[in-house]
Measured scan of single mutants.
Amino acid sequence: NQESVVAAQLIPINTALTLVMMTTRVVSPTGIPAEDIPRLISMQVNQVVPMGTTLMPDMVKGYA
Score class of each variant (00 low, 15 high):
Leu17Ile: 07
Pro29His: 09
Ile37Lys: 14
Ile11His: 00
Gln44Leu: 14
Pro57Cys: 15
Gly31Ser: 03
Ile32Gly: 00
Val6Asn: 02
Ala8Arg: 15
Thr15Leu: 03
Ala16Met: 13
Lys61Phe: 05
Ala7Pro: 01
Val49Asn: 00
Val26Ile: 09
Ile13Glu: 15
Thr53Trp: 08
Val6Thr: 12
Val48Arg: 08
Ala16Trp: 05
Pro57Asn: 09
Pro57Ala: 15
Gln9Thr: 13
Val45Cys: 04
Met51Thr: 04
Ser42Val: 02
Thr24Arg: 09
Leu40Gln: 00
Thr23Ala: 12
Met56Cys: 14
Ile11Asn: 00
Val48Gln: 14
Asn14Met: 06
Thr54Val: 12
Leu17Glu: 00
Ala7Trp: 02
Pro29Asp: 14
Val20Gln: 06
Val6Asp: 00
Ala7Thr: 14
Lys61Glu: 05
Val27Ile: 06
Val45Thr: 10
Thr53Phe: 09
Thr30Glu: 14
Asp58Asn: 15
Ala7His: 01
Arg39Asp: 03
Met21Cys: 03
Val49Gly: 00
Gln44Phe: 07
Glu3Ile: 05
Val48Thr: 13
Pro12Glu: 12
Leu40Met: 07
Thr15Cys: 04
Ser28Asp: 15
Val49Pro: 00
Gly52Tyr: 06
Val20Asp: 09
Leu19Arg: 09
Pro12Phe: 03
Asp36Phe: 09
Leu17Gln: 00
Thr18Glu: 10
Leu17Thr: 00
Ile11Pro: 00
Ser4Ile: 02
Ala16Ser: 08
Thr23Gly: 15
Ile32Cys: 06
Leu55Gly: 00
Leu55Lys: 00
Met56Val: 13
Pro57His: 13
Asp36Ala: 12
Val26Thr: 13
Ser4Lys: 02
Ile37Glu: 03
Gln9Leu: 08
Asn46Val: 14
Ala34Gly: 12
Gln9His: 11
Arg25Asp: 14
Lys61Trp: 08
Ile37Leu: 09
Pro12Val: 03
Thr18Cys: 03
Thr30Asn: 14
Val49Ala: 03
Gly52Ser: 11
Ala16Asn: 04
Met21Trp: 04
Ser28Arg: 02
Thr15Pro: 00
Glu35Trp: 04
Leu40Glu: 00
Arg25Thr: 09
Ser42Ile: 02
Leu40Asp: 00
Asn14His: 07
Pro33Met: 10
Thr18Pro: 00
Asn1Leu: 15
Val60Phe: 11
Arg25Asn: 11
Thr15Ile: 05
Arg39Ile: 11
Gln44Ile: 08
Glu35Arg: 05
Asp58Gly: 12
Met22His: 01
Glu3Tyr: 05
Tyr63Cys: 13
Ala7Gln: 01
Gly31Tyr: 02
Thr15Ala: 08
Pro50Ile: 04
Thr23Tyr: 10
Val27Pro: 00
Lys61Asp: 07
Val27Glu: 04
Pro12Gln: 08
Ser4Asn: 02
Ala7Glu: 00
Ala64Cys: 15
Pro33Tyr: 09
Ser28His: 05
Asn1Cys: 12
Asp36Ile: 06
Asn1Arg: 02
Glu3Val: 05
Met22Gln: 01
Ile11Lys: 00
Met22Leu: 14
Leu10Arg: 10
Val60Gln: 00
Pro57Lys: 08
Thr24Asn: 09
Met56Asp: 13
Glu35Val: 14
Gly52Met: 14
Lys61Asn: 10
Ala34Tyr: 09
Val60Tyr: 01
Met43Pro: 00
Ile13Asp: 13
Leu17Ala: 00
Ala8Asp: 14
Thr18Ser: 10
Thr53Val: 09
Met21His: 07
Gln47Phe: 04
Met43Ser: 11
Ile37Arg: 13
Val49Asp: 00
Tyr63Lys: 04
Val60Asn: 02
Pro50Phe: 13
Ala34Ser: 14
Ala64Phe: 03
Val20Ile: 13
Val6Gly: 01
Thr53Gly: 13
Pro50Arg: 07
Ile32Lys: 01
Thr18Trp: 02
Ile11Gln: 00
Ala34Val: 09
Arg25Glu: 13
Val27Asp: 13
Thr24Leu: 05
Thr15Ser: 04
Val20Phe: 07
Met43Asn: 09
Ala8Leu: 08
Ala7Phe: 01
Ala64Val: 11
Pro57Arg: 03
Ala64Arg: 11
Glu35Pro: 10
Lys61His: 07
Arg25Ala: 15
Gly31Trp: 05
Ile13Cys: 14
Glu3Leu: 04
Gln44Ala: 09
Gln44Tyr: 06
Pro38Leu: 04
Tyr63Glu: 04
Ile37Trp: 04
Tyr63Val: 04
Asn46Gly: 15
Met51Asp: 12
Val6Gln: 09
Pro33Lys: 08
Gln2Tyr: 12
Ala64His: 14
Gln47Cys: 06
Val27Trp: 02
Thr53Leu: 12
Ala8Glu: 09
Ile41Gln: 08
Arg39Val: 07
Thr53Arg: 11
Gly31Lys: 02
Asp58Lys: 11
Asn46Asp: 09
Asn14Ser: 12
Gly52Cys: 07
Ala16Thr: 07
Thr54Lys: 03
Glu3Gly: 03
Pro50Tyr: 06
Gln2Pro: 15
Thr54Pro: 07
Lys61Thr: 08
Val49Ile: 15
Thr54Arg: 03
Val60Glu: 01
Ala8Cys: 06
Thr24Asp: 03
Val48Leu: 14
Pro29Cys: 14
Lys61Arg: 07
Thr24Val: 12
Thr54Met: 03
Val20Glu: 06
Asp58Val: 13
Tyr63Pro: 06
Glu35Lys: 05
Ile11Thr: 01
Leu10Pro: 08
Ser42Gly: 14
Ala64Trp: 03
Thr18Gln: 05
Asn14Ala: 04
Lys61Leu: 10
Met51Asn: 10
Glu3Ala: 06
Thr23Ser: 15
